[in-house]
Amino acid sequence: MNSVIKVRSLHKKFGKVHAVRGIDLAVERGSVYGLIGPNGAGKTTVLRMLVDIIRPTSGSVSVLGHAPRSSRPGLRRRIGYLPGELRLNERTSGASLLRHLADISGPVAPGVTDELAERLDLDLRRPVRTLSKGNRQKLGLIQAFMHRPELLILDEPTSGLDPLVQREFLALVREAREAGQTVLLSSHVLSEIQHSADLAAVLAQGRIVAEGGIASLRLTGTSRVRGLLSGTTVEEVREALAGPDRVDDLEDLDLHSIGEDQVGFSGVLRGQADPLVKSLSRFTVRDLTIEEPDLEETVLSLYEHTGDAS
């Protein structure tokens, strides 16, 4: 495999604001790569530098073997780009707009735009000015995918989409990868990256704080747990969690009595749920919830584990 995107020591400053701080990045051909981080982490700035909307303060960028700042229109036609802030000509219909964009981006096979519109449930006859945020986002996705580019660069691609359309988008990403296309997408939604990307980088404050395979990033290793047990006491539950099946990875544990014989609990689980379930199996479990933490909490955890928690 060879790198479709190569970024080395990339910096971007806007006056006194250091938005991107020395990022190194390589995206291999035929892969799906995710950039994940909270709003303001630097994701959009990185993507805009890849398509030469803005230029680096320092560092090097190569996209499809070329430097974006010296590239010609031929390079841009090999890329499908969806910006985070989508601005469309509102004085035309969706179909007319896509025909105009097809003249710019390159050949679009007959029937492709109609097929994509059907899959995303978008009426292309409607004027752009009448479209909701979600339908405008669908139009943006169609223009990015329709000419089947070698490289797709997608900034927050599911913003404004309902869950069914989000699922269809993930199917489009899988199909693009199977066809040999390369996809770089950004998101602040953990599950979106987990369900679509082969590799990912976590950005915070303009830096990559973790990078690698999805499983290795501990994105799925930290969960919030809470529950309700009956027929027991706080002391008995505490002893069970410290017993033979002790749960070493349960942190910030809060145990509290509810009525005479019920105990509520909550905590952060860093690891597998199996030891916790075994420890609680001796009690009557009235309720047990294990949920993904929000992104801010996960990024803070990654800071702690990489020594960047300054």
Rank of each mutant, 00 (worst) to 15 (best):
V46W: 01
R69C: 11
K43G: 09
I36V: 15
S60H: 11
H66T: 08
Y33K: 11
M49P: 04
G37C: 00
A67H: 14
I36Q: 10
P38H: 03
S58R: 15
I36N: 05
L50K: 00
A67D: 15
N39P: 08
D52S: 13
T44W: 15
A41N: 00
S58T: 15
T45I: 00
G37Q: 01
P56L: 11
Y33P: 02
G37L: 01
L50I: 04
L47S: 09
Y33D: 06
N39L: 01
K43D: 10
G37E: 03
D52M: 03
T44F: 04
G37V: 00
G65I: 09
G65K: 13
P68Y: 06
T45G: 04
V61P: 08
I54G: 07
H66R: 15
M49W: 12
R55Q: 14
S62M: 06
L47Q: 07
S31H: 10
T45S: 10
I36A: 03
V63W: 11
S62Y: 10
T57E: 14
G40E: 07
P56W: 09
G59V: 00
M49L: 13
V51H: 00
G65S: 14
I36L: 15
L64R: 03
V51N: 03
L50Y: 13
G34S: 13
L50P: 02
R55I: 08
L64E: 02
V51S: 01
S70R: 10
K43W: 05
K43H: 14
I36D: 07
S60Q: 14
H66I: 07
Y33E: 09
P38V: 03
G65P: 15
I53T: 14
M49V: 07
V51I: 10
L50R: 05
R55D: 09
G40F: 10
S60V: 05
S31T: 15
G65Q: 07
G40N: 07
V51M: 01
S60P: 04
V51A: 08
L50H: 04
S62D: 13
P68W: 12
D52C: 10
M49Y: 09
V61A: 10
G65F: 14
Y33W: 04
V46G: 00
I36G: 06
S58E: 11
I36T: 12
A41M: 03
L64T: 08
L50W: 07
T45W: 08
I54V: 15
S58P: 03
V46I: 11
S60A: 14
V46L: 03
R55N: 12
M49C: 02
N39E: 01
R69T: 02
T57N: 11
V61D: 11
T57I: 03
M49H: 08
M49E: 10
L64Y: 09
V46K: 00
G34I: 05
S31K: 05
G42P: 02
T44K: 13
I54C: 13
S58L: 04
D52I: 00
T45C: 04
P38I: 01
G65D: 12
S60T: 13
V32H: 04
A41I: 06
V51F: 01
L47I: 13
R69P: 11
A41S: 13
G59M: 02
L64C: 05
L64K: 04
R48I: 03
R55F: 07
R55E: 09
H66W: 15
K43A: 03
S60Y: 14
V63P: 11
G34N: 01
N39V: 06
G34Y: 00
S62R: 02
G42D: 02
I53V: 15
I53N: 06
L47Y: 06
V63R: 09
G37W: 01
K43N: 09
